[in-house]
């Protein structure tokens, strides 16, 4: 039977295409245009070539913010993913406690970023905050405003508190979709708890785990509001991540050209790392032979 070709489907895609063009493509094009020019206000632009890119790429300030951001994302993923899996495994699969656990898990996700920042700013204060006061009372010299290490601990713990639930909920969705027959077969074979996790639960969670890792990486790499509210990028520049630095450059110093170049480099790094994560995780274990020749 001959296949029927009907290109009407393209018209259904058109509204999305227009919307994406309006909200993403056109602003991105504008950023590209700004990145090769210098502006002195009053909408006057002067050609600057690729020099803004060269300045950003060789600036120590950018290198430091990038290293801080990569370190932050690595710490976040190393904590939130295993912790999320552990909590999801410990959650009940049926019974009255299921909705209770789900609601409790969803609560941090419902709080806006700036409110989370404000909560933790107060919570971690040694004079009026419960956490800060308790840690201080235990004899630990803790002050997130003065001490770099304390500021980092506060920002990391705040992010873990805010976002581990997302990993938990995604993993939990993967876990409850596993049919009972798999567990029964494992029981008959006398599989250990670890074997059940390694060969049944982990592979079945693979897809949702990929989404969780991607979401958490992209989000942590773009983090702005929470550390900005809690530490303001300080002490010094110790918690100034790329987005905070970018805002300082674009709005604080009104250096539109350099900020545009920096945001494009930032965007390309996120794109590259997300693509690597996606490709590695979707192809994990698929060691296939080469097929097809060159174009």
């Amino acid at each position: 039977m001959e296949k029927t070709w009907n290109n009407k489907a393209w018209f259904f895609v058109l509204p999305v295409l227009l919307l994406v063009a309006f909200s993403a493509v056109i602003p991105l094009m504008t950023v590209v245009n700004y990145s090769v020019q210098d502006s002195f206000g009053n909408n006057q632009f002067f050609w600057y070539g690729a020099d803004w890119f060269r300045e950003v790429l060789t600036s120590e300030r950018f290198h430091d913010a990038l290293i801080r951001n990569l370190l932050f994302s690595a710490i976040i993923l190393a904590i939130e993913v295993p912790l999320g899996i552990l909590v999801a495994l410990a959650m009940p699969k049926k019974g009255i406690w299921v909705p209770v656990c789900l609601v409790l898990m969803a609560l941090p996700l419902l709080i806006p970023w700036n409110v989370v920042g404000t909560i933790w700013q107060v919570f971690a204060r040694t004079d009026i905050g419960l956490l800060g006061y308790t840690v201080d009372a235990l004899g630990i010299d803790y002050n997130y405003v003065r001490n770099t290490f304390d500021a980092w601990v506060t920002v990391v713990v705040m992010d873990v508190w805010h976002w581990t639930s997302l990993v938990v909920l995604l993993c939990y969705a993967g876990l409850v979709s596993i049919p009972d027959a798999y567990y029964q077969a494992a029981k008959i074979d006398g599989a250990s708890r670890w074997a059940v996790f390694r060969y049944i639960q982990l592979p079945k969670m693979g897809r949702v785990l990929l989404i969780a890792v991607l979401l958490r990486f992209m989000d942590s790499f773009m983090i702005y509001t929470e550390p900005f509210v809690v530490t303001g990028g300080g002490p010094g520049n110790s918690t100034t991540f790329l987005s905070i630095d970018l805002v300082k450059l674009a709005i604080g110093q009104f250096n539109i050209g350099e900020a545009a170049a920096m945001s494009l480099i930032y965007f390309l790094i996120i794109l590259l790392l997300s693509w690597i994560f996606y490709t590695v995780m979707t192809n994990a274990g698929n060691d296939k032979p080469m097929t097809g020749g060159g174009e």
Binding site: I26, M29, T30, V32, N33, Y34, V36, Q37, S39, N43, F45, W47
Partner: peptide, 14 residues
């Protein structure tokens, strides 16, 4: 479209 600050090189790029 002047707000987009178009230049010939960027237009050619796109």
């Amino acid at each position: 479209l002047s707000w987009m600050a178009w230049t010939w090189p960027t237009a050619i790029f796109f």
